[in-house]
Simulated assay, not measured.
Amino acid sequence: MTVVTLPDDSWVRDVGPVPGIEYVTWDLRTPPDRAEEVAVVVPPYTGASAQLSALSQVPRLDLVQLLTAGYDSALPLVPSGVRLANAAGVHDASTAELAVALTLAALRGLPDFVRAQSQDAGTWLPLHLHPALADKRVLILGYGSIGRAVAARLIPFEVELTAVASRARGGDELVPSVHGVDELPHLLPHADVVIVLVPLSAHTEQLVDADFLAALPDGALLVNVARGKVVDTDALVRATSHGRILAALDVTDPEPLPPGHALWSSPGVLITPHVGGGSSAFRPRAVRLLREQISAYAAGRQLRNIVHEG
């Protein structure tokens, strides 16, 4: 029998039995039961990054299966020779929904209405024609599975889509072609909305810098549901401080964003506290992935979403 750890009993119940697999629960906070036998570890969804050093307690560990799409913080803590898989696809629906919600909220001025309602007596704001999402030129920066999920949700809003990935390639049923990131200087001046979805790496850290922001037209909206470090925070503060561009951010650098940080008070900036994947859509998709991945492991089949071969 192959021993697999799951974060708690609820995950054991939901994933269900798999032939050849025996489950133990481990939240990475205490020494694991049957550490000498564990081959696969599924860390908890939240708070795992601070605990991943505990993986060194599992001498025969072969695979770490994350419940997050991002893996940049986990990679340095995975022991040598251990494979790492992320949860690509699990968060597509949740993150795509939030990307669209942030876009609509920022364009249609919803934060202003919330502030007006939260006043003691409430304030009925005068009519103001806010920008619509309809007819906007939307650039999706990072056209992987989440990027495609965003594109599919945006098409009914009657937008003009441009997809950008690390390299140019052919399109799909949603976009006629995918541009390479090297084309950004020519694409950004024509983008009304940029939705950032790239993973964090040495190539994407501070990809959205002062030159990137300066290339956007006045009134453009930057939506970041990727990682905070993809954006140069100081450059973003300067670009938004006078209202030249808008920003809707689910991630920031630093994170959590401390009280008093300039981004909190920058006009036209909407901030949510890294909740892109945190919806009711997460659990059933995560359970399906774990069931498929654990079954494949037990049967010796090819695994999904391997991001590090060990």
Rank of each mutant, 00 (worst) to 15 (best):
V237W: 01
D9W: 07
A247H: 12
V150Y: 06
A93N: 03
L303T: 10
I155N: 06
L200P: 10
A286Q: 10
L129W: 00
S266F: 06
T103V: 04
H91C: 11
D135M: 04
L107H: 01
G228Y: 11
S177F: 03
S94T: 09
L141S: 12
S10P: 04
G16H: 01
I294R: 13
R238K: 15
S118R: 14
V78I: 15
G81A: 14
Q117N: 03
V164K: 14
H130Y: 09
T95R: 06
S279Q: 09
G144N: 12
L55F: 05
A299C: 08
S145W: 02
P32R: 02
P7A: 06
W124M: 04
T240Y: 03
A132G: 09
L161P: 06
S56N: 11
S201N: 08
T240F: 10
Y71W: 15
D192K: 05
D253C: 10
Y71I: 08
T95D: 07
A50W: 08
V38Y: 07
L200Y: 10
E36Q: 05
V175Y: 07
S73V: 15
V150C: 08
T95H: 06
R60H: 10
A235R: 11
D253P: 09
S166P: 13
T68R: 14
V24C: 11
H274E: 13
R304N: 15
M1S: 14
L184E: 12
A214L: 11
P259Q: 01
L200I: 14
G300V: 05
L257T: 06
L141T: 13
S166N: 11
A48F: 00
G219Y: 00
P273K: 05
L28S: 05
D120V: 14
S279K: 02
A106I: 00
L139F: 01
A191N: 09
R137V: 06
A93I: 15
R301W: 04
L257C: 03
D172E: 03
A220E: 10
D172W: 03
V90D: 01
D8P: 01
D27T: 05
Q65S: 13
L52P: 11
P31V: 06
V40F: 07
L207A: 13
L28M: 06
L249Q: 10
D120P: 15
A210D: 12
G16I: 03
L289C: 07
V12T: 15
S73D: 13
A298W: 04
E205Q: 14
A39L: 14
T2V: 14
V198K: 07
P259W: 04
A101R: 01
T2A: 14
L207F: 00
V64R: 13
S295Q: 15
S49A: 14
V175A: 02
T95C: 13
G243C: 09
L174E: 10
V41S: 08
H130D: 09
E158K: 08
P131K: 01
L107S: 08
G81M: 12
A239M: 13
S177C: 12
V58T: 09
P79H: 07
R167T: 15
R291N: 12
V208G: 13
I146T: 15
L28F: 05
E97M: 11
T252I: 03
H190K: 14
T162H: 02
L77Q: 15
I195D: 01
R148H: 10
V38M: 01
D250M: 06
L221A: 04
R60C: 06
Y45P: 00
P31D: 02
L6D: 15
